[in-house]
Design a protein around this nucleic acid. Sequence first.
DNA 1: AAAAGTGTATTACTTATATAATACAGTTGA
DNA 2: TCAACTGTATTATATAAGTAATACACTTTT
Lengths: 128, 128
Amino acid sequence: MISFEGFRAIEGVPIYLQIVNHIKRGCVAKTIVNGDSLPSRRYLSALLRINPMTVQKAFRLLEEEGLISSVQGSGSFITIDNERIIRIKAELLNDEIRKMIASLKQMGISKDEAVELIVRQWEENSDE
Amino acid sequence: MISFEGFRAIEGVPIYLQIVNHIKRGCVAKTIVNGDSLPSRRYLSALLRINPMTVQKAFRLLEEEGLISSVQGSGSFITIDNERIIRIKAELLNDEIRKMIASLKQMGISKDEAVELIVRQWEENSDE
DNA sequence: AAAAGTGTATTACTTATATAATACAGTTGA
DNA sequence: TCAACTGTATTATATAAGTAATACACTTTT
């Protein structure tokens, strides 16, 4: 069963998208693998204290992308292969880093400054 | 007059927030300084091809934060001091880097991998 | 003075996000 | 069998984001 232990909602980002990203990032990190079962919509909505329909929206998107498969009465499970994971990894990494670099450049930060700040902050947020 | 030449709308982020951030980041980068005048709401809305009320919302937020001052009939201009800029810089940098690190950690990326990816991508997006 | 520019305010509409309450259909397991 | 779980569907409501049209007050410029 896929875990949502470390899941922390971020304000300003739609929760259904955060659920989608949680799954995608887990696949990239190999903490989620093909065949893994997902918690039920009702269970997850109770765990995250959100509406079942919000979970349903996230699961529907994942199903439309072909990352999960759902069976009425039974449940949902991961359906993904390595080739797909590699593409998702590249896509997520590129988006995330590109946005941050664009932002820091707009702030007049140099490459070396950026690396310095990132290295310093990498350890700091270990426990939060 | 503050320039919006390099302004590129990012999908998924409210435009009024992007305008607010454009001003804040410009202040941090010192490309925008105290006393600079802003384009009028109507002019900027035409330039960015968005509704004047969307620009108004961004300007209202900036005014509520005390970063700009508006005079009816005349225009709007930047009102900010160095102490404020330092605080905004720390705030923006921290938020941006923290979010990226959190995301990359969820993807199982190591610190060294992250630095490598960022350094490589830093030059690549110079001309986009 | 008057036109043309400024900021500001109001109302209405569309879409997205999230919640809420039900209902129905299929599977599992005691 | 049947209760308890699954996924799925519908309808309604609330808030935020963004667009749209219009109006008014003020300042600048001619």
